[in-house]
């Protein structure tokens, strides 16, 4: 990298993107980018620091700017519960929600509560802001065209009944073998998993039928654990009951 841009307005960003029609690298918290850069996995010579664009660190009742660090997301409670296990506390002081959702690593745990809360996302695309349901853009990865930027997430932060658990192979600070989030919402039961497959997986279910839910997900075998072990963990979590059943 030999150029860093810091646009202060979206007009400046629009102009800048015209010079880089291929793939500008948006730099947010930098925790994934800097690790990859050191390993020479990042080819772009120009990076765009997006943190000083207006609205990127907005945090209000119904809006979360994409550059808000994960440690600042403490409500609703499920956000805190899921977020507090991503990386470690120091990293989370600069690891951003947008970076986690847009990252390339398989885990992207923060997307689970966003999907469970039926969040919407505003994407800056070719000079315009497009707002849509997150799940319409999220299929294994957040589907972004080159030059598209995640601007903000929008959600109703009211509390919902949920169950959450996270398994790792060693210490608490580790990538998940399986992160489990089950939520009861008006729409039905949400179950989301990270670490269970090679990408985050989720589904909505009308009823709490353990076998149906179990069969919806595909476990992976990798150096952290076998698919059989992950399946066992999922069975254990599902058997604890629906998120709205008394514990």
């Amino acid at each position: 990298m030999n150029k860093l841009y810091r646009p202060q307005t979206f007009e400046e960003l629009t102009e800048l993107l015209k010079d880089y029609p291929d793939k500008p690298l948006f730099y947010s918290g930098g925790t994934e980018i800097m690790a990859d850069y050191r390993l020479r996995k990042i080819k772009q010579a120009a990076w765009i620091d997006i943190k000083q664009l207006p609205g990127m660190i907005e945090l209000s009742d119904d809006t979360i700017g994409a550059c808000v660090p994960l440690n600042e997301l403490i409500s609703p409670r499920m956000f805190y519960d899921v977020g507090q296990f991503v990386a470690d506390r120091t990293v989370r002081n600069h690891l951003t929600i947008g970076g986690n959702v847009c990252g390339k690593l398989p885990f992207r745990e923060a997307v689970l509560p966003l999907l469970a809360m039926e969040a919407e996302v505003t994407i800056f695309s070719e000079g315009e802001m497009i707002r849509q349901r997150l799940e319409d853009r999220f299929d294994k990865f957040l589907r972004l065209e080159p030059g598209e930027l995640v601007y903000q997430f929008h959600l109703d932060r009211s509390e919902r009944p949920y169950r959450h658990n996270r398994y790792t192979t060693s210490s608490v600070v580790d990538y998940p073998l399986m992160t489990y989030l089950a939520v009861k919402a008006d729409r039905g039961y949400f179950v989301g998993l990270s670490g269970y497959g090679s990408v985050p997986q989720y589904g909505w279910f009308d009823e709490w039928k353990q076998d149906d839910i179990f069969n919806h997900f595909q476990a992976v075998t990798n150096d952290r654990g076998s698919s059989a072990y992950r399946e066992k963990l999922l069975r254990i979590e599902l058997a604890k009951g629906a998120p709205d059943e008394a514990v």
Partner: peptide, 18 residues
């Protein structure tokens, strides 16, 4: 680990320009 505006950060994962 350094403190940035009093908050701990991992300085190996951050551009100096930050």
């Amino acid at each position: 680990t350094m403190l940035l505006d009093g908050v701990p950060v991992k300085s190996c994962l951050m551009l100096a320009l930050d």
